[in-house]
């Protein structure tokens, strides 16, 4: 199954918001998010003639975007260490009770755990599909999720208590 340009445009339009979420949370910076998405969309467009439908179009596009984000992270090491990028401050829009702590906890996760949580728990990817996007084994997805969720649940706990109390 090949994609034509109209189908590609529709695919991007359908997933752009979710991909913005993934790219922003992986990169921690709006400008980097846009740069990575532009690179990814151009790469995907260039690769259209070779898309054979072996994976779903969504998985294919997410994989290209994730790889573009990782490329950008590596490049940012020119100016900042990876850990500093990962620990970028939460966006101002997250500064609502509870959200800021969750955003900070998410930003503090290693990139691979962050991506697994975002794909499975936020975007609803099945484990095998997330494994294709991140180019790892399904078991690796499970272990990354386990560690990532543990940290994030701890960040959620105080706000839950507040809501309950």
């Amino acid at each position: 199954m090949a994609l034509d340009e109209d189908e590609f445009a529709a695919l991007v339009a359908e997933h752009d918001r979710a991909l913005r979420g993934l790219a922003f949370r992986v990169l921690g910076d709006r400008h980097a998010m846009d740069d990575a998405l532009q690179d990814a969309y151009v790469k995907a467009f260039r690769a259209l003639p070779r898309f054979r439908g072996r994976s779903s179009a969504r998985t294919w596009l997410y994989r290209i975007v994730y790889n573009a984000c990782i490329d950008h992270l590596r490049r940012q090491r020119t100016h900042a260490q990876l850990d500093e990028v990962a620990a970028a401050a939460p966006d101002a829009g997250d500064a609502v009770a509870g959200r800021a702590a969750l955003a900070a906890a998410l930003a503090a996760l290693p990139v691979d755990q962050r991506a697994a949580v975002l794909l499975v728990d936020v975007q609803g990817f099945a484990y095998p599909e997330a494994a294709v996007v991140l180019d790892v084994r399904v078991g690796t997805i499970a272990s990354r999720l386990s560690r990532g969720r543990e940290t994030l649940r701890a960040a959620l706990a105080p706000s839950r208590k507040g809501a309950e109390g």
Binding site: F24, D91, R99, V120, D121, V122, L156
Partner: peptide, 27 residues
Amino acid sequence: MTDSPKRDQELGAALLELEVPEHRVDF
């Protein structure tokens, strides 16, 4: 969106509420 039996629904819902920035004007 597909639904996975191993998805953490509560955590996913909380993360979904986080801000997603718009593209820059010239994007």
